[in-house]
Amino acid sequence: MDTEALVQLARCPLDNPNVHVIGVTGPPGGGKSTLCGQLVQNLAREHKVAALLVDPSSPYSGGAILGDRIRMSALSANPNVYIRSLSNRGNTGGVNSTVVSIIRAVMNCGFEYIIVETVGAGQSEVKIASIADTTLVVAVPNLGDDIQAFKSGIMEIADIFVINKADLPGADVLFAALRESAVRHKDGWLTPVCQTVAVEGRGIDSLLDYIRAHGDWLRRQGRLTEKRKQAAKFEILELSSYYLQSHLDQVPADVLAANLANKDFNMLQRLLDAYREIVNSLSEVN
């Protein structure tokens, strides 16, 4: 990535309270893409909407096939819609290291809703909660052991649960189970459980009502600013670890091994010192 561009982007404000960043995550097979497509389509009737769709990169080649766009091909002619496919570029956790930079960019291009769809590879994709104002966790009835799939920490990050394919048998059981375990956030947001059939567009209106309600609640509570600060923190954490890794990747392993904590060139010590120095100088600036 062009580092200069990243620095430029980092100067773009992230605190616009009139923009709503919505994260969509959940185990594979839940119809997340179809659901996102419906959300975009509905919102784009009156608003400018950006969809950032993350797909996994190949661990072998680093390349990726970014296929989510196909599911939104009907929207690709809509002037209110911007679609950007992203590779996670090896990042585990469902997103990629530059996603906040991209959110800054689209936020400052007049988009009012920004939807981020995570990889959906089934692993614990909790990073989205650090980025989005509102996090949707999508589940479907009878997809293996559904509740089990949720236990990997993904329950806690939901601001809204969505049971998609709610016309399938087993939806009632899942609904009851999620209601039971619905999380009450501090300051009193009770995580609602929404039922949708995204392929038919059913339940989308009421889901949007909940999304808006959550946005209003965040603003009322003054928590939106808090969220955006979290996102900026996430940005610096992810970018620095990504860049460290990509620089180290360019050095042959034997060179790294030889200089890890060498007398003449103590790389580890130097790295740690550099970090400490940067963090220390922060307190001087402030």
């Binding site: 990169s57 190949s58 072998y60 080649s61 680093g62 390349g63 990726a64 096939i65 970014l66 296929g67 766009r69 196909i70 091909s73 690709s76 496919s85 590779s87």
Partner: peptide, 10 residues
């Protein structure tokens, strides 16, 4: 993809 590129298929 296998050559390390990011491919968007329409």
């Amino acid at each position: 993809r296998d050559a390390g590129m990011e491919v968007i298929y329409t």
